[in-house]
Design a protein around this nucleic acid. Structure first.
Lengths: 161, 161
DNA sequence: AAGCTTTCCGACTGGAATAGTCGGAAAAGT
DNA sequence: ACTTTTCCGACTATTCCAGTCGGAAAGCTT
């Protein structure tokens, strides 16, 4: 239970963009499809953009698209970006382990490191091309963006058909 | 970075008791050896006791000891007790998964479950007999409890030798 | 130029969790 | 009686989480 909501949302958003496959999606479209609070999503997209994972265009006909092919984006990268170190405990981070008074010879550290390593391995080999291809369900409808009104909650301005 | 300080402390305390191997340790002894704030440790010991992991005796010559052989206590059990579910995200808990609007066909869930499973596997096969035997270093000194003054910070009442 | 739609940016907030402390009560031994 | 220990509950300060909100800037359309 250590993946924050923000990280969760970020991975969902990237997954949606991977499914869109090069097509750009508007912020509110992503929000509606993934059930992310729109105002919160903006914050997240900004961070994704800052990290170079996503490219944006403003104005009407604007939106977001992935900056790299989905196969080149690992889940690990997104999680790292929003979550920080993967180690379950501060004494077992690879980069800057926190000082531990029991350090030399604390057998627990080895186990925490082991958890860190397998977690890392899984997230690293999981990329968004695979995730996109494995996805299915009602919320995956590639054409919906341009064709019909799927979210009649907003914009009741033109009655389709 | 999801193991709380409390969980960390709890595992350290149990490890100390496993190293003591049947000998009982007083709360402040455990605290001194593991560098856990003494008042905080009390709270933790109470929880360990409530879960039946530890047995206690009051008064002078009192203290704590393990309620089971160290080999029978898995790291998973202690972590579960203090940390709750092992799944990285609420939608992937085995017991009561949180409702997810993208649920059927969300490929992310599979990966989170995979992380959960390997984490569980590692923590489950790691028991405190092994951890105790693998431990070493200055903070592991079985005889210190009864013999000399190792923590001259407290109790300056009788000058030894 | 006006007006719309979109992204962009920073500040703000309520609530929950974390990481403890503190005071005293109850056993048990000396 | 007195000391040492565990036991118990309440209290607290700080940080993190999960957002909201208001408005500015950019780009398209008419």
């Amino acid at each position: 239970m250590w993946i924050s909501r923000k990280t969760d949302y970020a991975t969902r958003a990237v997954l949606m963009l991977a499914i869109a496959d090069g097509e750009s999606l508007k912020s509110h479209e992503i929000a509606a499809r993934t059930h992310i609070p729109p105002s919160f999503l903006e914050q997240i997209m900004a961070q994704l953009r800052g990290a170079g994972l996503v490219r944006s265009v403003r104005g009407p006909a604007g939106g977001y698209k992935l900056n790299h092919p989905p196969a080149d984006i690992s889940l690990e990268r997104v999680v790292r970006l929003f979550q920080g170190p993967l180690a379950p405990i501060a004494c077992a981070t690879r980069s800057e382990p926190e000082f531990c008074p029991m350090d030399p010879g604390c057998s627990l550290k080895r186990t925490w490191a082991e958890v860190r390593d397998v977690t890392r391995a899984i997230l690293e080999r999981t990329n968004f091309a695979d995730l996109a291809s494995q996805a299915s369900g009602a919320w995956v409808q590639p054409a919906i963006t341009e064709t019909k009104e799927t979210t009649p909650v907003l914009r009741p301005r033109s009655v389709p058909r």
